[in-house]
Computed example of a mutant assay.
Amino acid sequence: MVGYFDRFLRRHMNALRLARWGEPAFADHPGPIVVYCNHPAWWDAAVVILLAGRLFPKRASHAPFDARMLERYAIFGRIGAFPVDLDSARGAAQFLKASRTILARPKAMMWITAQGRFADVRARPLDLRGGVARLPELAPDTLFVPLALDYAFWEERGAEACAAFGTPLQGADLLALPRPERLARMEAALAETLDRLAVDVIRRDPARFTALVSGAKGVGGVYDLGRRLRATLTGRRFDPAHRAGQDRMNRDRIAEEDRLP
């Protein structure tokens, strides 16, 4: 499925980008990890699968999935998704029962779209569902990591899928808080990560990101064929990207800024 969605994203998007400041540094955590994110688009499942496969290949990933949707997309059940009835009280019990089993495994990893519904990336408050705040009670050694997801159109015809991991929260620290405060702390951490990611997305500067997947550039077809022919006749290297050359200049500039005291 990682290979499938890699090809799928290359065909339909310009890139999957991970903010340089939001790259994960917690893969070696000795206990389980819960990544909880916002839920802005249908693409979230594909992005999560790619992030899990590319960045955490040694961990077994799991995710709660709307039970009705899982019936339609049964393939997800074969790669770690488990059903949760979102429209009944039984769903909360399903979620906690499955989570208890998963988080008992030290190398397990859960990915949760904690809003439980599609919501615009700019909407505030985030209104995370309360179930995610119950998880520290099941496994205090779990690391809880906010993940911000955002999508935007820049200069290319395909959209940019942008992601950033926030500062991890220790399960034991969250457990020391009452449930309402615990949920508020987790929501604040995700909102902070989203706001910081939005700054980079608005700047539209690919050099601020690491491209995990890159799609085809340019318009394609006869138009790009003509551009390639003109470049060949004039002895120039053909780059189909709309920002040809600019991204490399920006990367060099940021690298130089990083070297400054």
Score class of each variant (00 low, 15 high):
R7L: 12
L183Y: 07
A191T: 14
E155Q: 13
E71K: 13
E181H: 13
A255D: 15
K97G: 15
K97V: 05
L86D: 04
H242L: 04
A241N: 05
P24Y: 11
L177V: 11
A133E: 06
I79Q: 03
R228V: 02
F56I: 10
L128C: 11
L55Q: 08
R253V: 02
F65K: 00
V2Y: 00
L103Y: 06
L70K: 03
P261S: 08
I79L: 13
E156A: 09
Y4Q: 06
R129N: 09
N38Y: 10
D195N: 08
G53F: 00
A27K: 08
R17D: 04
G116A: 06
R20E: 12
D28W: 09
L260H: 10
I254V: 11
A189L: 02
N250K: 13
A27R: 11
T167W: 04
L96Y: 10
I33G: 00
E192M: 15
S99E: 01
A176P: 09
R196C: 08
I202S: 14
A98C: 05
R105I: 00
A207S: 04
R59K: 00
L143C: 09
R237S: 00
R208S: 12
A198W: 02
L55D: 01
A92P: 01
L212S: 07
A207P: 03
L143T: 08
E256N: 07
R72P: 05
H39W: 07
P64L: 09
P40D: 02
D127N: 14
A216M: 05
N14I: 01
E155H: 14
H62V: 07
L183Q: 10
M186Q: 01
K107F: 00
I49H: 01
A207C: 09
H12W: 10
E23I: 05
G235C: 01
T142R: 03
W43N: 04
R134M: 15
A119R: 12
L55T: 02
I102W: 00
Q115M: 13
D85Q: 02
G235T: 05
T193E: 10
A104P: 06
W21R: 10
A163M: 07
A89Y: 06
T210E: 14
F8Y: 14
A98F: 02
A152D: 15
V145H: 07
L260P: 00
D6I: 08
